[in-house]
């Protein structure tokens, strides 16, 4: 077993432990952890079962098998970032709708003679 293999096994185990602990503590929602878990498990499997990595490397024409590990990890990072962009876009839309509702609600309250303060009339 070479150093690279030991290093990547330790790395992926630590990553997996971190993810599970974050979920356990409730600071990482399950729905945002799926890709992370898949990523760490994939790297762990490829690190432990060196044969799979070597086989894949040969069939893909990669001369140095460990570099395939980087490729797999990089693909996951790309996927995770894309996932974040989608999530942020959804939040952006929801946040816009929410703010518009607050705006319209405040006007409805003002019309009913209730001043809730904040920006605008009689507020800062």
């Amino acid at each position: 077993m070479d150093y690279f293999q030991i290093f990547s096994i330790i790395g992926s185990v630590v990553l997996l432990a971190l993810i599970i602990n974050f979920i356990r503590l409730g600071i990482l929602k399950e729905r945002y952890s799926v890709l992370w878990i898949a990523c760490s498990v994939a790297i762990l499997i490829l690190s432990v079962k060196k044969g799979i990595l070597d086989y894949l490397a040969v069939s893909l024409g990669v001369a140095y098998p460990p570099s395939l590990l980087f490729l797999v990890a990089f693909m996951f990072v790309l996927l995770i970032s894309l996932h974040f962009s989608v999530v942020i876009s959804i939040f952006h839309e929801k946040n816009k709708i929410l703010s518009q509702e607050v705006t319209l609600l405040k006007e409805a309250l003002r019309e009913a003679g209730i001043n809730v303060g904040g920006k605008g009339k009689d507020g800062k």
Partner: peptide, 8 residues
Amino acid sequence: VLNHPYNM
């Protein structure tokens, strides 16, 4: 006047 809570 409809006041947005922040610049949107």
